[in-house]
Write a protein that binds this DNA or RNA. Structure first.
Lengths: 365, 365
DNA sequence: AGGATCGTTGACAGCGCTACCAGCAGCGAC
DNA sequence: GTCGCTGCTGGTAGCGCTGTCAACGATCCT
């Protein structure tokens, strides 16, 4: 009978409009801008849509409106715990909004990033979240030419493309070293892996702090381009102590490395913190329950993700944030592994019974 | 001049076709099924597309063809290391294919899963990857009615919706317990968190093994619905030893818990493995470098993801696998933490210097 | 040689939705 | 009373691509 209805009860906007007794365009408006409808029609369309179980066809919408409701996210790694927290924040913040997340992995390659960016931009995303501030010239140009809001996450720096949210890895590293100085440490080693731009900036912070104190020594630094792991932390630390037997602290570029260093100390019967202090970076969950508990620099990863997505969505909908650059800061969480040296005690197992302590140096910008 | 060209050099298929001197439909075919074109036209279209930098409009393609090139992935958690490995496999395998991944997080809720499934299915995905075999009746019905290939991952069980890839958590747990029995352990505790269906099946395997050996004791089991963490492992273990002081081993439902148990043992001066053996599950990277090194059940998470995606893509393109259900097996990686008990030695730090050993019980179906 | 078949190409007609613009009331101001 | 304004509604015309079918010449078989 109804010739307008296509085969097999497929529910289109037209069906909803028909049932509601309005034109398709009015029904369409209901989904995009319900305020523009009179209350009567609004409720009619709403109940018609519900009754028919209408689900909009996103492809048609994208084609007609020349834009998508996709937020592209470019991160360098899916394995790294740090990014899984950020991602969780992004997904949580986008949930309930009309936007869906399209995730891609650059594998720490800015060339790969450039390629993916080109791909994304061609699909006219509603917004983009990219990691870091080190893009290729070409990527940078594409980002600047893009006609959608963009958030750079994980760190802050000069010349944001658009919005930016993160913290200073340089300052965070300096704060960690300052903490070690305060505990009386002088021969502080640096252990780093992967050496992506953010780890590099942590190293820069370490170098600056050491130089300022007149304690810099190139031989205290051990790094590798190899992806990070707990095992690698142990191996790098082994290299370090083989070369420099007098170190009294190790600053690790991340927590996995720190855990590896802790295990290696245990393997070698090196008392922590009495002989060597350990400080990690990121403050993953396990740091608080290691024995001894491990000092780390806490970063607000979940918030970084959720705030980035929230800011982006606001910007997409026209409400640009007053402050496009957001410094989320960091916090040095002081734990047993970096306590001041005490007179050498017998390093027996089970010595570290005292409760976890959380006196902290904060940086809340 | 050319009235066909829209404003602003936007490159459509029509432009490519015009430059190549063919009809739009021929150009279209080039991208979908180049084999169908004569070599001459194929090269003409190819160079025209390259010259113009043509990028197909996916929305238009989806609208016209009534299907998308999106693979939907439903996983219960973004934070869990286990899933990040699986995801990495999925992303790696989909890279280079025409398909893009759309990821959603069910947060371990089958109701949430049902909701997301409805959303996904409405977009006519090319394929679907879902976690586990415990869907709601409604979800199950939707999956069975879906006209796209589907892979269930993480475990295997009866009645696959379509394809299935995983391993038996029940058998894996039994193998872990058998290993502990072989090491002379009898009072084996079970520590589990979150208690999602797969952890539940590990518990079932543990219970069955203990019952078969006449060693089952309900009081050896400590579980919680709380999400897993290293700290939680320590807390649950503390509960366990407070109640049952005579346990000689702990089987942990995952590696985070195992690490927490190890730290708690260290805190309490309980020698591992001389007094208590520890076995984890998943064999995350850190297990091999802990002190003592930690025994675990290795699971092929990355392969699970990559194989699932590869199978799915094959199936989408019409090549259904000969074996729709794939058991990836597991492997008990025996390490120091579960070695046979030895006469009580002084539990001094640094005792565990011997190299990591990897004699293993395998299950390769 | 004639017809059937294959491989290749093109014309046409939408897919379901929204941008754009026009129309039409109802209202207040002059 | 008329004008212009605002608020709401609808018609028209595509968005860029592909499914379907038809047409064409070339090739093959008997």
């Amino acid at each position: 009978m109804g010739r307008k209805r296509t085969k097999s009860g497929k529910i289109r906007l037209a069906e909803v409009a028909e049932l509601a007794g309005v034109s398709p365009i009015t029904a369409s408006r209901f989904f995009r801008n319900p305020e523009a409808l009179s209350v009567a029609k609004r409720t009619r369309v709403e109940s018609a849509a519900r009754e028919l179980g209408y689900v909009p066809n996103l492809a048609a919408r994208a084609l007609a409106s020349q834009r998508t409701e996709v937020i592209g996210v470019l991160i360098p790694s899916l394995t790294n715990n740090v990014f899984s927290d950020v991602l969780r924040g992004i997904y949580d913040a986008s949930e309930g909004s009309r936007y869906s997340i399209q995730l891609s992995n650059t594998r720490y390659s800015i060339l790969q990033e450039e390629k993916l960016l080109r791909l994304f931009l061609a699909q006219k995303p509603a917004g983009l979240i990219v990691t870091g501030i080190d893009q290729t010239t070409e990527s940078r140009a594409m980002l600047e030419a893009a006609d959608c809001p963009i958030v750079q996450i994980m760190e802050i720096g000069p010349n944001p493309v658009d919005m930016m949210i993160g913290f200073s890895h340089y300052d965070a590293a300096r704060a960690a070293i300052a903490h070690l100085f305060a505990q009386g440490r002088r021969r502080i080693g640096f252990v780093g892996a992967r050496m992506d731009p953010r780890v590099q900036r942590r190293l820069d912070g370490y170098v600056a702090a050491m130089k300022d104190a007149g304690l810099f020594d190139q031989r205290l630094i051990v790094t590798t381009a190899t992806p990070t792991s707990v095992t690698l932390g142990g191996a790098l630390f082994a290299d370090l102590v083989a070369r420099e037997s007098d170190i009294d602290a190790v600053f690790c570029a991340n927590d996995d490395l720190a855990l590896g260093v802790l295990f290696e100390c245990r393997r070698r019967d090196i008392p922590v913190p009495d002989q060597i202090a350990i400080v990690g970076f990121n403050d993953l969950e396990f740091m608080a329950s290691a024995v001894p508990t491990l000092t780390s620099v806490r970063t607000n990863r979940y918030e970084m993700g959720s705030t980035a997505a929230a800011m982006l969505i606001e910007a997409i909908e026209g409400k640009r944030p007053e402050k496009p650059v957001l410094d989320l800061g960091f916090m040095v969480i002081e734990r047993q592994s970096s306590q001041a040296q005490r007179p050498m005690a017998s390093p027996r197992a089970g010595e570290w019974v005292p409760a976890v302590q959380n006196d902290s140096v904060t940086n809340d910008p």
